[in-house]
Simulated scan of single mutants.
Amino acid sequence: MKTASKLGTLYLVPNTLGDDARSAQLPHVMPIETMRCASQLTHWIVEDAKTARALLKSMDSLAPLTCSIQEMQMTEWRGAARNAKYGDKIKPEALLEPLLRGIDIGLMSEAGVPGVADPGAELVWAAHRLGACVKPLIGPSSLLLALMASGLNGQRFAFQGYLPQDGGERTACLKQLESQSRKLQQTQLWIETPYRNAAMMASCLQALAPQTYLCLALDLSLPTEEIRSMALADWKKLFASEAASAALQNRPCVFLLLAH
């Protein structure tokens, strides 16, 4: 077995949390050392090639790329199950083959940090099995930003990913999370597809107790960022008008609750 010193390194490269004006965002959300490190990589595994190219193009003016984007080797990976759905049966180990030749690889998700709410974890685990070095680079994480700004329990928390889409199942899941939060004094975090935000909020207003704290963290790190934490009773007053629900739609959001 090769030693880690002879293998390439898998770099976990953060992405911005929004698509617009990446060049303007980067100095505020990405350390220059992260960009300099990313700019030297020629081999990439990405969730979405279009998004990855857009980020690298924006980085180029701050940390010049070592080669053109066209010369880079870039492969898309959305997780084993999802890739197989589209007829791609390539295994993580095959994607990491350049590491065996001493070539460094960058792993990038569509937004935020790789491996967190992201299929990249499978590739990171495969790199560990190979004995390769895994290097996480500093950048924006919507989950940590939301937790920091929520005022809820940052000592004990759990991320639940996406909740069920079915209305009844979603309501039952929210009640279960509320019960668990109350029992453990644990903040519960989850995300939703932006166009379903209003439906998620309606379920929260229906399922959760008036005294439960709920935080909505919208458009994190963007100029339109909005973060608000209130008890459910206060959220119900705010959402008495349809305009409040409309304001949630199509905006990336992290939901957090803490029950008492």
Rank of each mutant, 00 (worst) to 15 (best):
R36L: 15
A63Y: 09
F239V: 07
A231C: 10
P223E: 12
K6N: 15
M59N: 05
P223C: 11
A54M: 08
Q211K: 11
A209V: 03
G102Q: 08
L257A: 05
S150W: 01
I138C: 11
S179F: 03
P136R: 11
Q73P: 01
Q40V: 09
A84C: 06
D20L: 12
A209Y: 01
L174D: 01
R196L: 03
G106F: 02
P136L: 06
A4E: 11
I227L: 10
L95T: 04
T3R: 15
E33P: 09
V46R: 02
L257H: 01
D104A: 12
C204S: 00
L257G: 00
A247E: 11
D104N: 13
T9G: 03
C253Y: 01
R170Q: 07
R129V: 10
D118H: 02
R82N: 13
A117N: 06
Q25I: 03
C133A: 14
Q40K: 15
H43D: 12
I191M: 07
K135F: 10
N197D: 06
L222G: 04
K6E: 13
Q188T: 07
Q211E: 14
E97A: 15
T66S: 15
Y11C: 02
C204P: 02
A158R: 15
K237E: 14
Y195C: 06
K85S: 06
Q180R: 09
S61C: 10
M230L: 14
C37V: 11
A54C: 11
